[in-house]
Design a protein around this nucleic acid. Sequence first.
DNA 1: GACGTACCCTGAGTTACATCA
DNA 2: CATGATGTAACTCAGGGTACG
Length: 285
Amino acid sequence: MVDKDDDLGLSLALKCPEALPQRPLNLFVQKKALCSDAFHASETRAYLRGIDVNRAPTMADCEDVGVSSPNSTISSISGKRNDRETNEEENENENEIESSEEDAGGTGDTVRKKLRLSKEQSAILEETFKEHNTLNPKQKLALAKQLNLRPRQVEVWFQNRRARTKLKQTEVDCEYLKRCCENLTEENRRLQKEVQELRTLKLSPQLYMHMNPPTTLTMCPSCERVAVASASSSAPSPSPASNPLAAAPHFPLGPHQHRPMPIAGPWAGAASMRHRPFDAHGTRS
DNA sequence: GACGTACCCTGAGTTACATCA
DNA sequence: CATGATGTAACTCAGGGTACG
């Protein structure tokens, strides 16, 4: 088994939250020992009712009574591989704890009490989690001993803590993506507006009739296209109007400027003006 | 080496209790 | 005091990895 000691800092770098694995429902997968555990679940719960978990755990509370998920010692006790080193240590830990028959449900009442970890316990758990967000069995036992909790409780705490961390990271990522989306929307709006202004200019003959006649053809170094009328009006290639983001590189704000070209006609003028700098009102500078 | 089985661990989702406004 | 919202301990289930025969 992989030793988790050296793995995992605190950061769960969930950089792609939407890529979370989708679980296919596979009813045919053979699962060991789960049926019996599931079967006992309700009994277990009923059995648990009346146990005060806000005290030091007792033998009666411990996993070997049946209060556990399939991960716990229930399945491991009969385990083939029998990492009994672990279980022995767990039992040893559990044996330190006094048994309390009455707490174990003498009344048969059905109340699942819930442990509230003390501030000190929480602080220690948090500290440990910062160091490594998963625990190997030895660490788990040591921590359980230190906190006077059952190993299972430490295990559950780490599971839930990882889940919370991941959830938080997902929220952060969502927020970030939301802002990206807003920025892009704003950029899109701005470019659409720019296109609209260019179209307006194109339809105003007096604007371009007074232009100085261009003397040379120009070519955009980015797209390598000469600003020819037919190309600008009918070519299917991306234009600022249809794809502002894709066209953005063709509208550099800095050194990328073009000289006018000697083409007559409204669209020709517009085509050449396409690469001319405009002020905020869409007029030529 | 491939295969089947048993076990262990973890993530995801859910439940239920405790606490607080 | 009752109630809804929220936080979280504990649980169930499914899947992946490993050991072993």
